[in-house]
């Protein structure tokens, strides 16, 4: 249970970074922290008591294995996170080119 709460704490730290920070790069770092926390949470869900890694190998009888499915899913989610992160960083660099600053209070040509 403590572990899950720590995941929640990590998630909140990331959310704080996204919502409160003024620097684009810090917002991106916050987004990264959110992604890590949710991946961590999903992997933890697959834990079985005294389970071992879900690897099949020769001459081993496996009694108790952790759930392999979350690990596969988290790998997919990491790939997606990588794509999103790369795109956002590219956009941030371009924004810096156009506005000459990373400060979001100075980047407001749109009213939104």
């Amino acid at each position: 249970m403590t572990l899950y709460l720590l995941c929640l704490l990590l998630f909140c730290i990331g959310l704080y970074g996204v919502l409160r920070k003024r620097n684009l790069v810090k917002m991106i770092v916050g987004l990264g922290i959110i992604e890590y926390s949710m991946n961590l949470f999903f992997v933890l869900l697959g834990y079985r008591v005294h389970g071992r890694a879900p690897l099949d190998a020769r001459n081993q009888d496996i009694l108790n294995m952790v759930d392999p499915l979350p690990q596969a899913l988290v790998l997919t989610s990491i790939v997606i996170g990588l794509g999103v992160m790369a795109l956002i960083i590219a956009i941030a660099i371009r924004i810096y080119e156009k506005y000459g600053t990373f400060d979001i209070t100075k980047i407001k040509r749109l009213k939104g």
């Binding site: 790369a86 371009r94 080119e97």
Partner: peptide
């Protein structure tokens, strides 16, 4: 796909930086 794609992303970001 991943190996070349990741390298291409890195390259694109570096070229972006250089051109600036």
């Amino acid at each position: 796909k991943v190996g070349v794609g990741l390298f291409a992303i890195f390259l694109a970001l570096v070229i972006l930086e250089k051109s600036k």
